[in-house]
Nucleic acid binder design. Structure first.
Lengths: 105, 105
DNA sequence: TTGACAGGCAACCAAAAGGTTGCATATTGT
DNA sequence: ACAATATGCAACCTTTTGGTTGCCTGTCAA
């Protein structure tokens, strides 16, 4: 799970995921076109990190490599981790409110 | 939003949030007790990062500082970002499946 | 008043992250 | 065959990150 969080920590990588979501199965060069001002190798490294976090899967087709979004890890994070915080949302907010009010006195 | 993702990227910080969720309103020293083998200053820095990302709010009470969980940014991420991926989940998976099958031929 | 306690600030350090350049390899179209 | 295309690999560099130590400030209690 740590790998997924770390992979999501970078804005360029989130952007890559966004663009794969819009158009799945793109090659490295296609994805490079979007991140302007960044070298192909940098994009390649980002994709490797996403792949290691299992957020994308790749298929080689001839000399090119197609990148596919794998939304499962994001789903798992939402379920197992964010879900916990969603459930306690109102409690935490009421704690916060009470704490702020008592500090006004 | 970037600050929130970056704040969530570290396991110690996620642990701090977990512990605040279990017991809201803890002081720095209380939170230190949990992260064994880490100095008070290191924990303090983590808390500062969480606070800057607006994931916790603090209230000073005398010489101590109480830390409260603020689940709103996590909720927003779940809504605005993860939600998008949840919605396209089945599509992406079927793309993946098709791509894998065609690579078998 | 004077310790002890809770926390803040700043300098410093090692390791990891993000990026670059240069070169190698494999595939494709002519 | 050969030139162009698509990607991989490795060394290197700079900035950020996570952590430490040392000292300073504010607050409480005896």
């Amino acid at each position: 799970m740590d790998l997924v969080f770390k992979a999501l920590a970078d804005a360029s990588r989130r952007d890559l995921l966004d663009r794969l979501r819009a158009d799945n199965g793109q090659t490295l060069n296609q994805l490079c076109a979007g991140l302007s001002g960044m070298s192909r190798q940098a994009v390649s490294k980002h994709l490797a990190i996403l792949e290691e976090a299992n957020l994308i899967a790749t298929v080689k087709r001839g000399r090119e490599k197609l990148h596919y979004l794998n939304p499962v890890p994001i789903h798992e994070i939402a379920e197992r981790w964010i879900g916990k915080f969603e459930r306690t949302r109102l409690d935490a907010l009421s704690d916060l409110k009470k704490a702020l009010e008592s500090s006004d006195e």
